[in-house]
Simulated assay, not measured.
Amino acid sequence: MNAYVKAARLLAHKQAGCTRNRKATPSKVITFQEIAARAKAGEPMAEISATCAGGLTRSDPVRSTKSASDLLLLSVSKQGCTLLSDARLLDGGNSIVHQGLFIRGRWRERKNGITEIETEPEFHAHAQKILDGTNLEPSTIQGLSLCVAGPWSDNYFHWLMQYLPILKIASQWQPLSTIDHFLVRGPVKDFQREALARFGIPAHKVIGINKNQVYIIEDLLLTSIPCDNFTYEPWVIRMLRELTESGSRKGRPTSLFFDRRAPAPRRIVNMAEISDLLENYGIQSIDCSTISFQEQINLASSSSLLIGVHGASLANSVFSAPGTVLIELLPRNYRPRYFSELASACQLQHLKLSGVEPGPLPLQQPIYNADIIVPTRRLKMMLENLATDRAR
């Protein structure tokens, strides 16, 4: 245990309201940045807990997140890291409670140029229902644990861009080999276990967090979450690209189509027709759910053309070399910026092609989950133009 952990643990246990295994009902919120700043200054948080009474509601005011300059700064980025004693982890890592306060400020989204959407109060309101309604005794996890869980952390895209980089942040404070547990939203998926193994983390240290269970973490190493949904940190891209394996690319395809199989939404209705077209242009179809994490990296890093319906598998484009072409197939009237912004950050060429629905959507089905008919002629024209450009 290094000096940072010793000092943080000593401070945490001196703070009021820190009796181990006591059931805590969260009151309002405190930002992650406030916790990190107080830990850095050695200030107790008891007075904050004492002044925040009552449960969290959607109408409660939520204090604004402080600027990045108020975070504990690390060499990799303007990110924060702190250690909490006896923190409660709820709802699969979506919410974390410390001394009766929900922690806010780890999760960030962008919409219409505004950095934050108020989604965390929704997470916290749901977590409080779990806390108030469960009759299960909290499960205690002893030792030092790193939280690699949070909103959508079991999704491949979010895991790559926002949660796997947590290891880099945490390693600036604590050698990963000295951390007892790595907390991941359960059930742990193969790509998560394989990705953690690339950083030397053995499977027995990975704990899957149940969404309906309340966990008391003896010592929780907690970081901010890098990369909001439409902004990608350069250091994160560099870190992920370091996972590519050097060596011969002989025998690997140079053009890939990421296939989506049932029960995933946004399936291609006219897939037989599209498959014939792709085969004519020598484009290999792969199903990412059937291959390993490392194989996904290897295939994406060796390809100069990637095609797929909007979905998490397109996150593999982060491993592609600058200049790679990414064609994103989309439902009609759906224009997300996840991959256009990622392509820009990775210096890829990004093209969009919208399809149409096979019929009227069910009343409650959002457009972004609609199955699509891909316009074959337009896709063929795109591929022809790309072939012509390459021939020049």
Rank of each mutant, 00 (worst) to 15 (best):
M1L: 08
A300D: 02
L167G: 06
F230H: 06
C18H: 06
F339K: 04
Q33T: 10
G247C: 01
N385L: 15
N229E: 13
W107L: 08
R108F: 13
Y334N: 11
S285I: 00
L131P: 01
L278D: 02
G282P: 03
R9I: 08
R241G: 13
D190M: 08
T223R: 05
C227Y: 02
I209L: 06
R106T: 01
L196A: 12
R241W: 09
R88M: 13
A125I: 07
R267V: 03
E43Y: 04
L73F: 02
Q213V: 04
R335K: 11
F157L: 10
I286R: 04
F319T: 00
S285E: 09
Y368R: 07
E384L: 12
S317L: 07
L330N: 10
P360I: 02
T244M: 08
I207S: 11
N212W: 09
V76D: 06
D154F: 07
A264D: 10
P360Y: 01
S285A: 13
H350C: 11
V214E: 12
D86H: 11
T82D: 09
Y156C: 05
H350A: 11
E233L: 07
R249A: 10
R335S: 12
L220Y: 03
I373R: 14
D259S: 11
L361H: 03
H13Y: 15
P375E: 06
L363Y: 10
A387F: 02
Q174C: 15
V269M: 07
T19Q: 15
N135V: 07
S145R: 08
T231R: 05
N135P: 00
D86P: 04
E118G: 12
I30E: 02
L144M: 06
R332E: 15
Q174G: 11
L314E: 00
T57F: 10
V214S: 07
L361F: 02
I48N: 09
P202G: 10
F182L: 05
T178L: 08
P265T: 09
V29H: 10
I201L: 05
Q364L: 14
I209W: 01
N369Y: 10
I209T: 04
A24V: 08
I268W: 01
H350V: 06
L243V: 08
R266D: 08
K78M: 08
N270F: 04
H181V: 00
D276T: 14
L361D: 07
N229S: 12
T290V: 07
I367D: 13
A127T: 08
K205L: 14
L353Y: 05
K380I: 00
S246W: 00
R390W: 14
S303L: 01
S27K: 11
D228V: 03
Q33N: 12
I103S: 03
A149Q: 02
N155A: 05
H204D: 15
L90V: 10
E116V: 10
L299H: 13
I307A: 04
R377H: 13
P263T: 09
Y334M: 14
I216G: 05
D86T: 06
P265A: 13
F293S: 03
K40Q: 14
A149K: 00
Q142N: 15
Q174D: 14
R238F: 03
S27L: 09
S153T: 05
V214D: 08
D132V: 00
S177G: 05
L73E: 09
K205H: 15
L164V: 10
Q294K: 12
V188S: 02
D70E: 14
R335H: 14
A262S: 14
P253M: 06
G54A: 14
G208D: 02
